[in-house]
């Protein structure tokens, strides 16, 4: 497994499994906060994540939130598969090259087939993005 780069919080583990999330990664999972109520993920902003203006591309931040919310959905349901139904993101502030960018995801409500999620993407105490998402728990088939 790849080494955990310096700068990531203690307890970080690789979370990129393959396909697109590995291509845009590496992405990491961080230890839960709030007694498991908050799932945490991180990546370090590299050249490939940027836009021409020198900030992290919005597509990368949305992709990161999508991965974080998908993983959270699987973690809390135990379901092998969950799908994004809708996702709303507001871009609050810019991310910069080298930033350790963290997602903090919370489950607002969980039903048998659906999850309501909310979260934020931060660098330290600075907010980059806030998001709410609706996820579907897929069946075993």
């Amino acid at each position: 497994m790849s080494e955990i780069p310096p700068g990531l919080p203690e307890g970080a583990e690789p979370a990129s499994t393959g396909g697109f999330n590995l291509y845009i990664g590496p992405l990491y999972r961080l230890p839960d906060a709030e007694n498991g109520g908050l799932k945490r993920f991180a990546f370090i902003a590299a050249e490939k994540h940027m836009n021409a203006a020198g900030t992290v591309h919005g597509g990368m931040l949305m992709s990161f939130v999508d991965v974080a919310m998908s993983r959270t959905s699987r973690l809390v349901t135990g379901a092998p598969r969950c799908s994004t139904v809708s996702l709303t993101t507001d871009f609050v502030g810019p991310g910069r090259l080298g930033d350790v960018i963290e997602a903090r995801i919370r489950v607002t409500r969980q039903t048998r087939t659906m999850l309501f999620l909310s979260g934020e993407v931060v660098v330290g105490d600075r907010t980059l993005l806030i998001a709410t998402g609706l996820w579907k728990v897929d069946g075993d088939t």
Partner: peptide, 11 residues
């Protein structure tokens, strides 16, 4: 296709 790729294409 990954949701992140769809949103990136939208952006």
């Amino acid at each position: 296709i990954h949701g992140g790729m769809l949103m990136t294409l939208a952006d």
